[in-house]
Amino acid sequence: MSVRYNDDFKREVVRAYMAGDKSTVEIATEYNIAKSTVSEWAKKYSEECQYKKNTTPKTSESDSAKEIRRLNQELREKDKEIEFLKKAAAFFAKEID
């Protein structure tokens, strides 16, 4: 399944990358994208983001990027819960036999 991201989300990732306070791996994890995607987007959007760096007011697209990050974090937490419950179910199923 291929996920398509809008240009504003890509620029948000590139701005985070250009800020320099996080590694590519940290940014990829935070935005739930591949490390290679961060690098690819940085090549494509870095010049554009350099000139627009924090000069535009926050838009709903920026809010959308924050919401995507929040939802990705929630999804990772739910995945951990599901994995735990699978292990517990297997343990108790083994006990019943």
Rank of each mutant, 00 (worst) to 15 (best):
S2I: 10
V3H: 09
Y5L: 15
D8H: 15
D8K: 11
D8T: 12
V13S: 04
V13R: 01
V13L: 10
V13C: 03
V14E: 07
V14Y: 07
V14C: 10
A16K: 10
Y17P: 01
M18I: 09
M18W: 11
M18C: 12
M18N: 06
G20P: 03
D21T: 14
D21W: 10
K22F: 12
T24P: 03
T24Y: 01
V25Y: 10
E26W: 00
E26T: 04
E26V: 01
I27M: 03
I27G: 05
A28E: 03
T29V: 03
E30M: 12
Y31V: 01
N32F: 04
N32K: 02
N32G: 03
N32S: 14
I33M: 06
I33S: 02
A34G: 09
A34Q: 10
T37W: 12
V38A: 06
V38R: 02
S39R: 14
E40K: 15
A42N: 13
A42K: 07
K43E: 15
K43M: 12
K44E: 14
K44S: 04
K44A: 11
Y45S: 02
Y45R: 04
E47L: 13
E47V: 12
E48V: 07
C49Q: 06
C49R: 05
Y51C: 02
Y51I: 05
K52N: 15
K52H: 10
T56P: 00
P57W: 08
P57Y: 11
P57I: 11
P57V: 07
K58F: 10
T59N: 09
S60H: 09
E61Q: 13
E61L: 09
E61K: 10
D63T: 08
A65D: 07
A65N: 03
E67V: 06
I68M: 09
R69Q: 15
R70D: 09
L71Y: 05
N72E: 13
Q73C: 04
E74V: 08
R76I: 03
R76N: 14
E77M: 06
E77R: 02
K78A: 09
D79I: 02
E81H: 02
E81L: 08
E83I: 03
L85T: 00
K86R: 15
K86L: 08
K86Y: 07
K87N: 06
A89R: 15
A90L: 12
A90V: 07
A90K: 12
A90E: 14
A90D: 15
F91S: 04
F92A: 00
A93C: 04
A93R: 13
A93M: 06
K94Q: 13
E95H: 10
E95Y: 13
E95D: 12
I96P: 01
D97R: 12
D97K: 14
D97C: 04
D97F: 06
